[in-house]
């Protein structure tokens, strides 16, 4: 194992030692329990006075649940990243590692790997359970869910790297607000843009911002019967991948310029 591997292992251990890790584990278990309960309810329900078989609604309900869980995972990655690198600068613990023959790039990427280790692990648990339950109980295809999970992972990388880069310049509270506000505002813009033409800055956010919700929703479109979501899944996922790469490069660039005081 090289220096990056050792630092990444240490960063994952640091992430697991944080108090928020316990809250993440509880929230993940609660999400799985909720899904388990939602997918085992009665086989029919009344919608607008009309009796509908639940299997008819499984696609939209499954898509909505899956995207919400994915967004939860993405927001979690951003929250964890908001101080996972900056705290090592604030307390001076980064100095001992950076006095070794370790590049700043390796150090920043290792801290990012620590965040992603925890958030992707929690995401894999929750989304894996969601895929298993939705497939076994509602008969939804697995392949679209796997593609959506991959899109969620890209979203985690993009948001975590952006949050980490922002944390080098902003106070923690401001970074957290930016992360939470940014994720949910982007998801809102994506939701509107999926079904209607949106103008103004919300439209710009939907068309050029990181398509956090729309990449997952488009991947899950095969679950919908007769409802079209606007957008091309491949192009939208490619845009999300470009955002993830750009965010990682922004993090590396920002960390190279940081003055280490300790």
């Amino acid at each position: 194992m090289n220096g990056f591997g050792w630092l990444a292992r240490e960063a994952i251990a640091d992430a697991l030692r944080r108090r928020i890790a316990f809250a993440v584990a509880l929230a993940a278990l609660a999400s799985v329990a909720l899904l388990e309960s939602c997918t085992s309810c009665s086989p029919s329900l009344t919608v607008n006075g009309e009796l509908r078989e639940l299997t008819e609604l499984a696609g939209p309900a499954g898509l909505g649940s899956f995207v919400l869980l994915g967004l939860w995972g993405i927001a979690l990655a951003g929250v964890l990243a908001a101080d996972h690198l900056q705290s090592t600068l604030d307390d001076g613990s980064a100095l001992l590692a950076l006095a070794r023959p370790i590049s700043r790039d390796a150090f920043a990427l290792a801290r990012l790997a620590g965040v992603l280790g925890l958030s992707l692990g929690a995401g894999a648990l929750v989304l894996g359970a969601a895929i298993a339950l939705l497939s076994a109980r509602s008969g939804l295809a697995v392949a679209p869910a796997l593609a959506a999970a991959a899109a969620c992972a890209l979203g985690c990388v993009a948001v975590a790297a952006l949050a980490m880069a922002a944390s080098l310049a902003l106070p923690r509270a401001a970074t957290l607000l930016l992360v939470l506000g940014g994720v949910w505002l982007t998801a809102f813009a994506n939701s509107l843009g999926s079904f209607t033409e949106v103008g103004g800055w919300l439209g710009a956010l939907d068309r050029f911002g990181p398509p956090l919700a729309s990449a997952m929703a488009l991947a899950l479109a095969p679950w919908l019967d007769g409802v079209a979501i606007s957008g091309d899944s491949v192009r939208v996922t490619a845009r999300l991948a470009a955002w993830a790469i750009g965010a990682v490069l922004a993090l590396v660039y920002a960390f190279r310029r940081v003055e280490l005081r300790g």
Binding site: D14, D91, G92, S93, L95, L96, A99, R100, P101, I102, S103, A106, G262
Partner: peptide, 17 residues
């Protein structure tokens, strides 16, 4: 990073895990 190969450093404010 190669410049710091073979360098030992003890900071004034030592922060340990």
């Amino acid at each position: 990073p190669a410049a710091r190969r073979g360098v030992g450093y003890l900071p004034e404010r030592l922060v340990l895990p």
